[in-house]
Simulated scan of single mutants.
Amino acid sequence: MNIELLRDFCIAKKGVTEEFPFGEDTLVFKVMGKMFCLISLSNPHSCNLKCDPEKAVQLREEHFEVTGAFHMNKVHWNTVSFEGTLNDSDIFNWITDSYELVIAGLPKKVKEELAKFN
């Protein structure tokens, strides 16, 4: 996985914006204003993804590349390292899971706005 593939995959999703709310080094992808993926520009060898708490623990147990997210709530966020045995399709699936988890938590009105995007 590289940052260009990750960026292209994230911004192709409906309702996604990219922002720098934590400074010029941390690229944050949001859906309808809510974060689902973060990556450092100076060290783009991992990303932080939102995750269901039970699945977060399971992924950490199954993959040494997955750990509790640095500077994030470790119950709901994982750091996924791109250096190891993970393949891009697994990472893409986890990005999609993160995106969908955030959407599931949006208010009904915001979900209706998202549905209007092409």
Rank of each mutant, 00 (worst) to 15 (best):
N2G: 06
E4N: 08
L5S: 12
R7H: 13
D8E: 15
D8T: 11
D8R: 08
F9M: 02
F9N: 11
F9T: 01
I11W: 07
I11T: 15
V16W: 06
E18S: 08
E19S: 12
E19Q: 12
F20V: 08
F20M: 14
P21S: 10
G23R: 05
G23E: 14
E24A: 12
E24P: 13
L27N: 00
F29L: 06
K30P: 09
G33C: 01
G33N: 10
K34L: 01
M35D: 08
C37N: 08
L38V: 12
S40Q: 11
N43W: 07
P44M: 07
H45T: 11
C47F: 03
N48F: 07
K50M: 10
C51L: 01
D52G: 03
E54Q: 10
K55D: 06
A56F: 02
V57F: 08
V57A: 10
L59T: 09
E61H: 06
E61N: 12
E62P: 12
E62M: 03
H63S: 04
T67D: 10
T67N: 12
G68R: 04
A69D: 13
A69I: 04
H71Q: 08
M72P: 15
M72C: 01
M72Q: 09
N73G: 07
K74E: 06
K74D: 03
K74R: 15
V75G: 00
H76Q: 11
N78A: 03
V80W: 00
S81L: 10
S81R: 03
S81Y: 04
F82V: 01
G84C: 11
N87Q: 15
N87T: 12
D88Q: 12
D90E: 14
I91G: 03
I91C: 02
F92A: 15
N93T: 11
N93K: 10
W94A: 03
I95Y: 01
Y99P: 11
Y99D: 02
E100F: 04
L101D: 15
V102S: 01
V102G: 05
I103D: 11
A104Y: 05
L106A: 04
K109W: 08
K109D: 14
E112P: 08
E113Q: 13
E113G: 04
A115M: 06
A115S: 14
F117S: 05
N118P: 07
N118F: 06
